[in-house]
Design a protein around this nucleic acid. Structure first.
Lengths: 194, 194
DNA sequence: ACCTGAACACCGTTCAAGT
DNA sequence: ACCTGAACACCGTTCAAGT
């Protein structure tokens, strides 16, 4: 039941990340809060970026689990997909620093993070394909349509979390509203009658 | 014709940003390359982040100029808007570090950067409204529709510049293709017959 | 008005050494 | 196998001082 130093380091580093962004994650402070010396982290992680990659992979894996669990019992493929995208933008707004860490640039390869990202994408594409089959989304290459949906959700979440989304005016559309708008538009697209 | 130290500092810092990301921009290296002491920058900028904000504001202003110039002579409002969005994603891919700097999180307020962002948004919304009037885009609140278009372009550019956009499969849709896809979908949306 | 040099309090990372 | 303490080469920032 003892958490183990490695897990403790990740836990503490995640807290520092949430509180002050990636700049606040210093190995010295991580070690201090974990009750070890300032370079004990090097016994578990090759570098600071490796620790950050472990955080990112852990969080993305958790997000994958939450999204698949949440959408399992939805009645229609469209509802499942919409729900997943809403949860995604909600998660991004609740954990802006984790969101930015995961989708930032990496100078190292992390197998763990790469696999989690691949799993997320595969799951998402199959959800899009199911919604296409149900007639809620237009026909065509599901990978390409999934890229469109993902780009919108990602961009809306990123702009909103950085405060760059139009906050003026009446409607005050949040990222979730933009997701709904896109779904509503796509619903009306006539079939290509291939 | 002498550039002046302040401009020289911005120029050198921009070069460092492009070459190695924001992490490579150290005031000491900026000073060294500008031929001044390692803390001469403090005579022109209150902090490192103030220097970064000056870079971001300068680049966003430049982008505004390029986009309005480029779209001036387009035949239709839709062509102008499409062109602007294509240029935007192209710029993001060509200058990924400037893109990420501008849209990252700021712990300081920069009036210069805020004004450039506001100008960009205002211009963009008016282009969207013109495209709506021409019938190329569905009716409705232009601010909200502009947010949708902007979120897509931003998300596509961000994912692509970080290498997170689906690179597998045949089509290999780039961010510009996603912009076109969205326009094609929106073109078919029936009018609300208000 | 603009710049310099020394100094302070931090970093990430390495290394020799301990159990 | 895991950890410590000292050390190195950096940072951003401040300050007294120079022209």
């Amino acid at each position: 039941m003892a958490p183990g130093t490695r897990e403790k380091l990740i836990e503490v580093a995640t807290r520092l990340l949430d509180e002050g962004g990636v700049e606040a994650v210093t190995l010295r402070e991580v070690g201090r809060l974990a009750g070890v010396s300032h370079n004990a982290p090097y016994k578990h992680f090759a570098s600071k970026e490796t620790l950050l990659a472990a955080i990112a992979a852990s969080e993305l894996t958790r997000l994958n689990t939450v999204l698949t669990e949440t959408t399992k019992r939805r009645r229609t493929p469209e509802t499942a997909l919409r729900t997943a995208m809403h949860r995604y933008v909600t998660w991004a707004l609740e954990h802006p620093e984790r969101f930015r860490l995961i989708f930032g640039r990496w100078s190292i390869e992390s197998a763990e993070l790469g696999e989690a990202a691949h799993l997320a994408q595969t799951t998402f594409v199959s959800m899009v394909a199911a919604a296409q089959d149900s007639g809620a989304l237009p026909e065509g290459d599901p990978v390409r349509l999934a890229s469109l949906l993902r780009a919108l959700a990602h961009g809306a979440a990123d702009l909103a979390s950085a405060g760059h989304l139009a906050a003026r005016g009446k409607g005050n559309a949040g990222p979730g509203d933009l997701v709904d708008d896109l779904f509503d538009y796509l619903r009306t697209v006539p079939s290509t009658s291939a």
